[in-house]
Simulated assay, not measured.
Amino acid sequence: MSDQKLTATGRKDEGKGASRRLRRAGRIPAIIYGGSAEPQSIQLEQEKTWVASQKEWFYSSIIDLDVEGKVEKVLLRDMQRHPYKQIIMHLDFQRVNQNEAIRMSVPLHFVNGDTSPAGKAADVVIMHELTEVAIACLPGDLPLNIEVDLSTLALGDTIHLSNLVLPKGVEIPQLKLGSDHDVAVVVARHGRVEAEETAEGDEAAAEAPKAESKDASEGEEK
């Protein structure tokens, strides 16, 4: 687990008008909820928080949130961005109980792909079917990411969720739902097969408008 730190201050004014004023002043309205305490309205500095939001840990780590000297351990649960500006509109943080299991989606890190048999073959494509995985664990066991070792991956191989090597205390709840939920994470296949399937899809898409156009012209003739 990798704890990170953010700094915030409390806020009393609420509502859309107050939030707009905060954003104009370079601040982000936010809230902390959960646990035994009441929800608390806070504000964070826009620029520093935006920089932090570009880091992977911002979304998958327990954060030490310092609110005017009082530090609470929280998880980011929701972030609203401006549709086209580099501005965070609002943040939701959930308090963490160290003795209660949490569920989080953490990123997958693929390693040794270039040195694997599949990676060395010119006509093989390594396809990443998933880029993150939902896990459950105690807060103290939360990993920053799950590493996927591709060193032995060869043509025709598939790595499933059940093949992932998980840190101690971490599990994938999806696997408890049955074998149908043991989905592929990585697949190694011939590059030319991938290209042929893509070409077939493109041809089918190109033919569809022609068929519709023919039907329409026949209708007009009638």
Rank of each mutant, 00 (worst) to 15 (best):
A25M: 00
G156C: 01
T115I: 14
E132N: 14
E207A: 03
W50Q: 13
E220K: 02
V193C: 05
I159W: 07
T198I: 06
E218H: 11
L166A: 02
R23M: 04
K70F: 14
T198K: 04
E200Y: 09
A52D: 06
D66H: 06
F58E: 01
Y59G: 05
I88L: 04
T115S: 14
L44P: 03
I28R: 03
T158H: 04
M89V: 12
K210P: 14
E38P: 10
D149C: 04
L155I: 06
V170E: 12
T7Q: 05
N99W: 15
Y33H: 00
L6D: 05
K73L: 07
A199D: 10
H190L: 15
R189K: 13
M127P: 07
G219A: 13
Q94C: 07
V133P: 13
V67F: 10
L161I: 03
K120Q: 15
D64Q: 15
A208I: 07
I63F: 08
I126A: 02
H109P: 14
M1W: 08
P117T: 01
A118S: 13
I126H: 00
H82M: 05
Q43I: 05
P39Y: 02
L22Y: 07
L144G: 14
A30M: 10
A25T: 00
A37C: 10
I42M: 04
L108E: 09
I87C: 09
A8W: 02
N112D: 12
L175H: 06
D78A: 01
E197I: 01
Q54M: 04
Q54C: 01
S19G: 02
V124K: 04
I63R: 01
T115D: 14
A136G: 04
W57P: 06
V96N: 04
R24H: 11
L161R: 06
I62C: 08
P139T: 01
F110A: 03
E200V: 06
S217F: 10
V74P: 08
